[in-house]
């Protein structure tokens, strides 16, 4: 599973990071530091999906 953030859309709500701060790291200003395309470690797919769903502006996407 791969996830990514559209940094044009991210507003630094930090809700993804509350789900899992390792899968969804933030930069110093609170914006997502997930990057455009990141691999989710095996076994953490459900958590990744929760984090993506927690984004209030839908900046995060499951890519595959």
């Amino acid at each position: 599973m791969r996830i990514g953030v559209d940094s044009e859309v991210c507003e630094a709500h930090g809700q993804c990071s509350i789900v899992d701060m390792d899968l969804f790291p933030l930069d110093d200003d609170g914006y997502s530091a997930v990057g455009p395309d990141r691999e989710v470690p095996e076994g953490e797919e459900d958590t990744a999906k929760l984090g993506v769903d927690a984004c209030p502006v839908r900046a995060l996407k499951v890519l595959s």
Binding site: A12, H13, G14, Q15, I18, L26, G30, L50, P56, V57
Partner: peptide
Amino acid sequence: PNPHVAFGKGIHACIGAQ
């Protein structure tokens, strides 16, 4: 979308939000 700030935002966003 619904980008409310009821839980705050950024590094101090409510850790118990979920």
